[in-house]
Simulated assay, not measured.
Amino acid sequence: MTGERTIGVGLIGTGFMGKCHALAWNAVAPTLATGLRPRLVHLAEADNTLARQRAGEFGFARATGGWRDVVSDPEVDVVSITAPNPLHAEMALAAFSAGKHVWCEKPMATSRADARAMREAARASGRVAALGYNYIQNPAIREMERAIRAGAIGRVNHVRLEMDEDFMADEDAPFAFKNGAASGYGALDDFAVHPLSLVWRLVGPVEAVVADQTRPYPSREGRAVETHEIASALLRLRGGASGTLGVNRAAWGRKGRIALQIFGSRGTIGFDQERMNEFQIFQRDGEARLAGFRTVLAGPVHEPYGRFVPAPGHSLGFNDLKVIEAGEVLAAIEGREARIVDFETGLAIEETIHAMARSHAEGRWIGVGEEN
């Protein structure tokens, strides 16, 4: 296309989320008619052979077994970081130093100091710094946000947040990377960040927490499990609302469940990620004998659903949310208003997680961002 503007993309890591980013970069321009068209320039994996294989599969022009080659490539303008969590900080800092925009998967980092360093580097660089929280892009979540802002349920006074999966539910499963301390706290930074990103968007920041963590299986294959698969917390939100949070990576039968209930002075909104194309709302106004929850089914009226399919009931999926997120990252790069979790908000979410871990250790309420 004559005069079309392109942006060079680098990708580090090609696992589940790496492939998700690649699919999003390939689909975002034709789906959302973005002002910038991604050009897949350079891909990095753990070794050259795998990198070349993935580059061929995903459509990248070049491949490398060294991630620094991607960061230093002058044709790369934005770097997708989908490597293991402990590597996020080093990669993001290098990318900012090289003048690149960054789209990094959550969590920011496995330590509070690293997350803070990433935020400071993002500020100093002047580049776009986005985190991979694609659940906030869901058209159903967007409509919930619009309804809450419009006062559909009145003043929010309480929230309940849950995230459950069963990939660590089997007590006979072997020891895995996510059982080790190098991966982070466990369910808190692996899971809790997602419902927290939603409550940040829908209601507002968390100011203080008291939390507990448990290990349902203290050891695997004779090795001590160093992370916690289950965590619970009480929350105090800015503005006066209270909240509860429960996360569990060992919840038999649960598959990617993020459940929210938001209670207000005039009604309630509920959502479950296992039924991601709908939400429920109760409003106190109306005939008492017909009182009850209504189900709102996402459709083309809820942007950008209609960019994917022209009719309600056909449903969007996880990868579609990533395409929407890629479009928001491009909007931010172009200087337009964008719906992203930037490194400022991302650090606040990370500070909440670290406050929960500290609360568990000290057995008391901890203010978010409170220094030792």
Rank of each mutant, 00 (worst) to 15 (best):
V206D: 03
V193M: 10
P139N: 07
V203W: 01
A147K: 15
L198H: 00
V193T: 12
E171K: 14
R236L: 11
D189W: 14
D190I: 15
Y135R: 13
R155Q: 15
T214V: 11
G204N: 06
P218Y: 09
G253Q: 11
E226M: 04
G253V: 07
E162R: 06
A187E: 01
R238T: 06
V225F: 02
Y133V: 04
Y133P: 15
V210C: 09
E120W: 08
N248R: 07
R155G: 12
N248A: 03
A231S: 13
V247E: 08
A152H: 05
A192S: 10
D212C: 11
R123C: 07
E207P: 01
L237P: 05
R155F: 06
R220F: 15
Y133Q: 08
N248K: 07
A147P: 03
I141E: 05
A140H: 01
A140G: 00
P139W: 08
F175L: 14
Y135W: 11
A169Q: 08
V128N: 08
N157W: 14
S125M: 05
L196W: 00
G180A: 15
S125E: 06
G246E: 07
S183E: 12
V206N: 03
R119C: 03
R127D: 12
V156A: 03
G132Y: 02
R149G: 04
R160Y: 14
A251T: 09
D189M: 11
D172H: 06
R119I: 03
A182E: 14
